[in-house]
């Protein structure tokens, strides 16, 4: 069951991607596979190289060294074929303000094959722009422009949807809606979503996996959710007991002041450990899993530096 996704060919592969401007290295030797059918987060503090990487992925800026392959096609040597599989919003979704939302979509529809009126209506319905689509974009709020941005990115049914800081400037309701339809998109249409952000809590809710980048270097890639969409079982459990010393001799682990005794174990062994404590005369008040939030992990990894 878990094997399936691992075997599938990644949608996009970043192979030793480097971007240098002068002597400054913005992104250094970044290698990353983006697995198909996931919402994949790209996390890092401001200035870590997220936008630079995304711009290279869609061919807006050149790649100094390495290559980016999307659906088996190189963005360097086979740009048109590679980018045809991508829909993207890079930073803010900027539209032609003097055109209506619908005219904007038609601009992009004309540039690809196989997008008819019906498909345009489909994406309008998906992002929920309704009748406002026929108003000029200059009258749109930021949230509406964001929706129009997503609509233009989805128009040609891309395999890979790339969104750069999509929650920037959205109100909490907008963020929630965006999250919901990204997940729906991933689930129903099988679109892989690659989303960058510096908002950790947001990524935690939205993504299946995240890659963490700092100072242009990839620090870590980790899976946040398993197949059922729940948190991966953590290995640390806290036992709240009255007699820490006795408890430690019975089940091992380390004493953590104010909390109790922390044991590294798997879920299945907890009743047994509890039985040991009880039979040893230790009173147990509570057992709970230590959930390390992404934020804690992130701060740990990046040394707490450079985060907003």
């Amino acid at each position: 069951m878990t094997g399936n996704t691992a075997v599938t060919e990644p949608v996009a592969r970043l192979l030793g991607v480097t971007k240098k401007i002068g002597s400054k290295t913005l992104v250094g030797d970044l290698t990353l596979d983006i697995p198909a059918g996931q919402v994949f987060g790209f996390l890092g503090p401001n200035g870590a190289g997220k936008t630079t990487t995304i711009r290279m992925m869609v061919g807006l800026i050149s790649i100094s060294r390495g290559d980016i392959v999307i659906g088996g096609r190189s963005i360097k040597t086979d740009f048109e074929e590679a980018v045809a599989q991508v829909g993207a919003i890079v930073e803010n979704p900027e539209m032609y303000k003097f055109l209506t939302g619908y005219q904007n979509l038609k601009q992009y529809a004309r540039m690809v094959s196989g997008v008819n009126k019906q498909r345009i209506q489909e994406v309008i319905d998906l992002v929920g722009l309704g009748s406002r689509i026929h108003d000029k974009v200059k009258s749109y709020s930021l949230g509406m422009r964001q929706r129009l941005g997503v609509a233009q990115a989805l128009l040609h049914r891309p395999k890979l949807l790339i969104l750069d800081e999509p929650t920037n400037g959205l109100d909490p309701q907008g963020i929630r809606e965006l999250r919901d339809y990204l997940r729906r998109l991933c689930r129903e249409e099988g679109t892989t979503v690659f989303v960058s952000s510096h908002l950790l809590s947001e990524m935690e809710l939205m993504c299946d996996s995240v890659a963490i980048i700092q100072n242009g270097k990839l620090i870590d890639v980790r899976r946040l959710k398993n197949e059922e969409g729940t948190q991966t079982p953590g290995g640390e459990f806290v036992f709240e007991v009255d007699d820490l010393q006795t408890a430690q001799t019975l089940i091992g682990g380390t004493v953590r002041n104010g909390e109790g005794i922390v044991v590294q174990t798997v879920r299945e062994d907890i009743p047994e450990l509890n039985a040991k404590l009880v039979s040893g005369g230790v009173r147990v008040y509570g057992i709970k899993e230590v959930v390390v939030s992404l934020e804690d992990q992130f701060l740990e990894m990046t040394g707490g530096e450079g985060i907003e």
């Binding site: 869609v58 807006l60 048109e80 045809a84 890079v90 930073e91 900027e94 539209m95 992009y108 690809v112």
Partner: peptide, 14 residues
């Protein structure tokens, strides 16, 4: 200046 260049250049056209 409109910023639309970013959306224009990521289409399957050289």
């Amino acid at each position: 200046s409109w910023g639309t260049i970013k959306l224009l250049l990521i289409r399957p056209w050289s």
